[in-house]
Design a protein around this nucleic acid. Structure first.
Lengths: 221, 221
DNA sequence: ACAAATCCGTTGTTTTTCCAACAGAAAAGG
DNA sequence: CCTTTTCTGTTGGAAAAACAACGGATTTGT
């Protein structure tokens, strides 16, 4: 577990907690580790979830395939983000989506019950952990709302622009790289890939932006 | 405050907490109340949020108007649900959306800091509250993901069917009423109202469903 | 290094949505 | 009760997206 401490101390969930405290908390929370290779399913629709997971490294996609085989990437999990938190609620049923490793990934599992039940004697940082967890979930919540705001744009062009400009703002630079290939970006925005590709090239020809694979640069107009 | 106890005890946030304990907790959390008339803005984009809010009665819409004046209902808040939780994170900036009362509403405000900081001596039910709060947020998270799954459907027809069938499942009946008028439903699903109205009538003519104002009945095919 | 698979841009056709406009029905307000 | 406003369905034309198909470039795997 020791090897993950340096990773974890940079996550929102453990921010403000010292190295030694993280280590003892991992023990207190009965943390376990699993590795996934690229393309491997971490969870499938219909499974029961018992733990809170945090992505230590790699990239996960929360996705859903509907009756007609259309694939939709509902959300992307980046290192330091948690997932599974919605299924900890008692009687919340089974997982509604698939979780797949977009690249080789390392996932830490925590006993949820132990996070929420305070043990002041054993863990002086437990209160901090609870706050952090709350912050982390709130951030996730916010990112879901953001995704909704991209998707609520009516045209593919507007969806692209709202996503790309947000991403530029998030990465604090007009040049940035996105964690999607074209098909994944299309799935994320719920549009057709070829139409989106077309629109991207139009935007480039109009001088709004430039791109090279997954590297984008937005231009002032 | 006493008058809200019977309401609150039925909410997820206070479930499992006795009447007297709720009352003392409201005091501990420095709860305050505000009423909004139909159409009134509870918050506007750009404001700072300091409290966690819970909707005691009525109905709120989280909505966003873009540069071009398109209105999008990002989410609907029903009684017992919380909101504002994403803006409690330190340095999370200002509210990105408007919050408007879709009908006369009553909102309770709680001091967020006091919720997350455990006071075992004063409030024996504080641990329970933290759990409940976590559950509540998780539920909200889930409903956001659900909304994303509606919006990710490619056609207006599929958006309608996925939303309506989920709503039927949620209300546990093939006959149910939805909390939207046509324009609001169109905004919620991010489609054009007239096209959606058209599609609804087609679905009715094909025998898939019936409706009367906001009352819908889905038919087996 | 080579074969296979994937990724990406491009194009033309079909389908769907958007938009504007209107009229009847229903609701709200005085 | 009457007027005004909102709500809903309906339409036709304009615009956009979806879809299918293809070739070249790149990547992957062996």
């Amino acid at each position: 577990m020791k090897q993950y401490v340096s990773l974890l101390k940079r996550t929102k969930l453990f921010s403000g907690v010292g190295d030694n405290d993280i280590l003892s908390m991992l023990d207190c929370l009965k943390a376990t580790v699993r590795h996934y290779i690229k393309g491997e399913y971490a969870f499938r629709q219909g499974e029961y979830i018992h733990d809170l997971m945090i992505l230590a490294a790699g990239r996960l996609h929360i996705q859903k395939e509907d009756y007609w085989g259309n694939l939709n990437i509902l959300n992307e999990i980046r290192p330091g983000e948690i997932f599974g938190e919605a299924y900890i609620v008692p009687n919340s049923g089974t997982l509604m989506n698939d979780v797949i490793a977009a690249e080789a990934s390392t996932v830490l599992f925590f006993d949820m019950e132990r996070i929420l039940t305070v043990c002041p004697a054993a863990c002086p940082f437990h209160t901090q952990l609870i706050k952090n967890m709350f912050y982390t979930i709130s951030d996730k919540n916010k990112s879901l709302v953001q995704k909704i705001s991209y998707m609520s744009q009516r045209s593919t062009r507007e969806k692209l622009l709202s996503y790309l400009s947000d991403e530029a703002k998030r990465q604090n630079s007009s040049s940035f790289s996105i964690p999607f290939n074209r098909q994944q970006l299309a799935d994320f925005l719920s549009v057709d890939r070829s139409a989106m590709s077309n629109e991207l090239c139009k935007l480039r020809d109009e001088g709004m932006l430039d791109f090279h694979k997954s590297e984008f640069t937005l231009h002032e107009m």
